[in-house]
Amino acid sequence: MDGTYLEVADTAVNAVFGRTRNQRRIAAFPQVHLVALIECGTRALLGVAFDVRRICEQDLTRRLLDRMRPGMLVLADRGFPGWLLWVDAAAGGADLLWRISAAVRLVPDQVLPDGSWLATRHADKNIWKALAGRPRSVRVRVIEMVVVIKAADGSRRHEPYRLITTLLDHVAFPAGELAALYAQRWESELEFRDLKITQRGPRAVLRSKTPTLVNQEIWAYLVTHQAIRRTIAATAADHRLDADRLPFTVALTVARDTVIRTTVRTGTHLAEMTASLLANLGPAERRLRVCPRAVKRPNAIYPSKPIGPASHSTKIIEYRIEIITGQTAPTTTTKQNSRTK
């Protein structure tokens, strides 16, 4: 589960979407807030909700709770795990593995052999009236870890993470495996890149001039994107390949070409796309890369990260996850095929 923003045309009626602002200035374009439930393996869109900018991620996520079903493990960043949303999402039967802020007070009730620990999370008293039959406390399993990265340019990073999960069985679901699996949450960033940049092209702003047409344009992008993803997933399944190896850019190019050549029949189109995907397979194993976030056009008085080689993607030569128990020395697990950000 992750969210992003889409910029729309700057018209008087589109102002209803709202703009971001800080102490010094206001953004040039209104924005739509979009939240998506994305399948990590294929990057297919399992559910999407969007609205005006002021609607927060948690409220948009509530519209997708029916998409979270038993058998799923839902990953989310620390902007999501509010008390009510956590309880309601878990009630649907899906398992959760969400990052949580270190500011949330959690006290270990039991330290497990793999370094994770069980805790009881209590609802704040100021939301008791809103619980409406929900429990005032829930049992969660906490995984505290540090991601250690050494890049080819000599830089090092140590990033602390705290995860909470509904998977309480440390034997069936070891902390090291869940910690490494959480890196798959960054698949959402790649999906948003394909949707907002690769598919949309150089147009940074949606062209529709009214809210009704903005809504229609966004759904058109999503439907087209999902159709291409379905074709990629079907090709990968037919040839027993990882869907990550089939490039979205190639599938998009073939789809555009066959739309232009209107005489091409659907069966021929699918065969051509399949052949192109198989001819442009990516590597069997992902390259480990790290790309620090940098501000190219700062709009605040505070200093920004430097622009140059240090702000671009760099190969990772060492990547490990250290599980922290708080009572014993950290245990280390190594993951070779994960992505970090």
Rank of each mutant, 00 (worst) to 15 (best):
A49R: 02
Q31K: 15
P30N: 05
A44N: 11
M68L: 11
D51V: 10
V52G: 02
R21A: 14
D51A: 15
L34I: 14
H33F: 13
R24W: 13
D51P: 06
R25G: 01
M68S: 01
V48D: 00
R25T: 14
D51N: 14
A44C: 14
L46A: 07
D59F: 05
M68C: 11
T42A: 09
F29W: 05
D66W: 10
A27H: 10
L45V: 14
A49G: 03
V35N: 02
F50V: 07
H33Q: 12
V48Q: 00
H33R: 14
G47C: 04
D51Y: 07
Q31T: 12
T61I: 05
R67Y: 10
L65K: 04
A36G: 07
A49S: 09
L34H: 01
R24M: 09
R25H: 10
A44Q: 15
G47Q: 07
V48L: 02
E57Y: 01
D59G: 00
L34A: 01
D59K: 15
M68W: 06
M68K: 00
T20F: 12
D66H: 15
Q31F: 04
A27L: 05
R62C: 01
R54Q: 13
Q58G: 00
P30S: 07
R24K: 14
R21W: 10
Q58N: 08
E57I: 00
G41S: 13
V52K: 14
R54H: 11
G47W: 05
T20E: 13
Q31P: 04
R54V: 12
P30D: 03
E39Y: 04
C40V: 15
A44Y: 06
I38T: 12
V35L: 14
L46R: 11
C40D: 12
L37T: 03
L46M: 11
R67N: 12
V52W: 09
I55F: 05
R25I: 07
T20V: 07
E57D: 12
V52M: 08
R24L: 13
A27T: 04
T61M: 08
N22A: 07
Q58S: 01
C40W: 13
A28R: 11
R25M: 08
R25D: 08
Q58D: 03
